[in-house]
Design a protein around this nucleic acid. Structure first.
Lengths: 179, 179
DNA sequence: TAATTACAGAACATATAGTTCGGTATCTTA
DNA sequence: TAAGATACCGAACTATATGTTCTGTAATTA
C-alpha cells in the first residue's frame, strides 16, 4: 500500500477518535474530520464514501485485532493448556484493554450503538459454539442474553470503570449470568 | 388541549411509527413525516423542534404509561398481595405488550438506541431499590447488569419473538440472570 | 526519467433543516 | 353569536452539510 495512503488513513483515524472524545458522533461533520486530520476534502472521499463507512471500517479494524486469535481458535496468552470458555472470554477482555486508546470515545454517544452492533456480531460467533444445552429456555434467547450481557459488561467497563482488570470484569460477568 | 393540536399530534405520531416500520430512523426526513402525516411544514415545527425531540416525546409518552403504576408503587394487576420483585417485572412486561403497536418499529434500527436509553433510565429507578446486597461484585455493576439484561430481553422479545407471553419472558429473564 | 497515483483545494450541485409570514379555518369566550 | 385568539397551511427563504468534479502539484514506482 502506498505510503501516502497509509499516512492519510492514519490521520483520518486519529482525527476521528480524537474528535469523538469531545463531540458526539451525529454532531460530527465530515468537515470537522477533514480539518482535524488536515487533509483535502476530496481526499477524504477518496478513502471513505461516508462518515458511517469510516466508523464501520474502524470497528472492523479494531475487532479483527481483538478477535484475531479467537476466530482462529488459538490462544497466545497463557490459556493454551485448558481452553475453557471463561479463559477465552478473559482473553478477549485483555485484547480489548490493549485497544483502549481507540475505543475510548467510541463506546459513548450514538456511535456506541454501531460499535455494539459490530461487537455483538463477533461475539455471536464466539458464544454460539460454546453455549451449553440446558433447560427449557429457548437457545435463541440464551445466546442473545449471554452476548448482550457480555457486550454491555464491556461497555460498562470501558465507559467510566476502566480501573478494573480484565480478570475482575470476567469474574463479574460469570458470577452475574447463568450460562 | 385544543382539538386541532391533539389531531395533528396524533397524525404525527401515527406517521412516525408507520414510517419506522419500513424505513430507518436516520434515513427518515422531516419531510417524509410531514407528507405521511399530511400536515403543513410549519405545523410540524410548531409541535417539535427536531426529529429527535419527536422521538423523545414519543418515548416519554409510552414509558409514562408503561411505568405509571410502577413509579406510583401501586399495582392494578393481580399482584397486590405479594409485591415480589418478579411480579413487578412481569407487570411491566404486560404493560409493554399493550403498547406493541407503537413500539414495534421503534426497537429496531438506530432509534432503538434512543429508546433503549430512555427505557433504561426508567428501569434504573425500578431496579435500584430492589437490588439485594450481596457478594463482592460492585453494586454499580450489578445494577447495570440487571437493567441491561432486562432491557435487552425486552428488545429480543419485541423484535421477532413477540409470540412469547409476558410470564414466559419474565421466567427466561429470572432464570438467566443472578439477582 | 517517465508514467502512474495520490493529494490539495476551489467550485459546484443537491438535499435537508429550520424560519418567516400572510392568509384561512377552527376553537373559545364573553 | 359575534369577536378575538389560536392553530394550520404552504410558499419562499436562509443556512448548512453532503458529495462530486476538475486542475495543478507532489510523491511513488517501474
Amino acid at each position: 500500500m502506498d505510503r501516502r495512503q497509509k499516512k492519510t488513513r492514519k490521520a483520518i483515524y486519529g482525527a476521528f477518535t480524537r474528535l469523538l472524545e469531545t463531540k458526539s458522533y451525529s454532531s460530527l461533520t465530515v468537515q470537522d474530520i477533514i480539518d482535524e486530520a488536515d487533509i483535502g476534502r476530496s481526499t477524504f472521499y477518496a478513502h471513505f464514501e461516508t462518515k458511517d463507512e469510516l466508523l464501520r471500517a474502524m470497528c472492523t479494524d479494531i475487532f479483527d485485532h481483538v478477535f484475531s486469535d479467537e476466530i482462529m481458535g488459538e490462544a497466545h496468552h497463557d490459556f493454551s493448556d485448558r481452553n475453557s470458555f471463561r479463559d477465552h472470554i478473559t482473553h478477549i477482555l485483555y485484547h480489548l484493554s490493549e485497544e483502549q486508546h481507540s475505543i475510548r470515545g467510541i463506546f459513548s454517544g450514538e456511535c456506541g450503538e454501531v460499535f455494539m452492533r459490530f461487537f455483538r456480531e463477533y461475539l455471536y460467533k464466539v458464544f454460539e459454539s460454546r453455549l451449553t444445552d440446558d433447560g427449557d429456555i429457548p437457545r435463541e434467547y440464551r445466546l442473545d442474553h449471554a452476548v448482550s450481557s457480555f457486550a454491555e459488561t464491556v461497555r460498562w467497563w470501558q465507559s467510566g470503570h476502566s480501573g478494573y482488570t480484565p480478570d475482575e470484569i470476567s469474574r463479574f460477568y460469570f458470577e452475574s449470568v447463568r450460562i
